[in-house]
Design a protein around this nucleic acid. Structure first.
Lengths: 213, 213
DNA sequence: TAACATATGTGAATTTAATAACATAAACGG
DNA sequence: CCGTTTATGTTATTAAATTCACATATGTTA
């Protein structure tokens, strides 16, 4: 098998293309060109074609791409032709927002449990979920086949929660705590840092000001 | 002036170094090496030095970096030696979580207003803030000198809100709606897409499974 | 004070990603 | 059925980012 490494930036864009295609499909658009996708998501047409080329030939020369088909292909590539069970670790404001975030359901993610260790939060309902004690995680993780954990706890608890996830068979972690977590190499982990992008903005605003002196 | 373009990845890491340095400082650490920073945030030592080199020489050969000093430098570079007033647009669950997110205050961001157009939300309190009607934005933006707007509204309202921000002098936008917004070139805009990173995880889990066949 | 250990700063080499350019294939019109 | 148009897929080119390697500077010890 020809195993060509796919750049993470390509996967990121694929996820964005995929959602754009879903929108086109909902709007009844049947055919789309790389140029239109590029325009819609803010990249170059060559980039779109190059990204898709990692995975095969999906278009028709002189015509473009069939929206429904390409949508399905992108979903398949991203592993979204199946449903994934998530656990949200932490039922604070961020955990709450993640539990109720529509975007996850739409893309086939199923929030199978919310966990916290704060007694005042345990038992509370979030939508049709009930906040569970952390101790319940092993049992529920097994029953619900939870392969992905989302960490939405304070920095001080993040490593401990990551350990709990790993110990109970979670294979991938999305970490919202602004700290580098220590996990075995075989665990997929990505961080989402809410203030980093804000600081890119302030950097650029300052930088621009400096350059116009 | 020598204007060397700074890669965005460098700025991203700088933000992460900066926070790591604050943590070291809180823990009473006074000196740190590029290797220790690298270890702490998960990059290579050469990367740390290269990143810092865009902005000057901050260390002492054979010794390392003074934690307090380097922390101040990184904050300065990121534009965080001043306070920035933000507006959170959208008082849904995500907007709520962002309003109460500690990480922003810690880094010098001041949430100067929360806005929504839903009458059932307007007037509600979030911490010491009161949700304001969207119509109040121009007045409050001017009074509070809001230069950064955070979009936490549904896709359907995102472009309209972006237009409102731009029209009222906002210079930078952090967009949580999973859609490419149209703004003038001089506006700094960055997107945070909560499901993209999850889909990188599912892609990798699937990819790994495919490779082990 | 000389030799050694340590860790920065940086130019060169390497790797990786993005862009451009173009050959190829499909559709259409006369 | 041939020429024209269009848009893909792919190769070549350019650009960018990362890693490497080492010269340089500092502190320490004998």
């Amino acid at each position: 098998m020809k195993t060509l490494r796919v750049p993470e930036a390509t996967v990121t864009r694929l996820s964005i293309y995929s959602r754009f295609l879903e929108r086109l499909d909902r709007n009844g658009v049947t055919t789309v060109s790389s140029g239109e996708i590029a325009e819609g998501v803010g990249v170059s047409p060559a980039q779109v074609r190059k990204d898709l080329a990692y995975f095969g030939e999906f278009g028709t020369r002189g015509v473009g791409y069939n929206v429904k088909d390409l949508m399905k292909y992108t979903l398949k590539i991203l592993g979204l032709d199946q449903s994934w069970s998530l656990a949200i670790m932490g039922a604070g404001n961020l955990g709450f927002a993640l539990c109720t975030y529509r975007g996850f359901n739409v893309r086939g993610f199923n929030i199978a449990g919310v966990f916290d260790n704060d007694p005042t939060r345990i038992g509370k309902r979030i939508g049709n979920l009930e906040v569970q004690a952390l101790e319940k995680f092993p049992e529920i993780a097994e029953r619900e086949n939870i392969r992905i954990g989302v960490i939405a706890v304070p920095i001080s608890a993040a490593q401990e929660v990551a350990d709990l996830l790993v110990k109970n068979g979670v294979e991938a972690i999305l970490n919202f705590a602004p700290v580098a977590l220590n996990v075995p190499d075989e665990i997929e982990i990505r961080n989402v840092d809410l203030s980093v992008k804000l600081e890119i903005l302030t950097f650029n605003l300052g930088f621009r000001a400096a350059q116009s002196l």
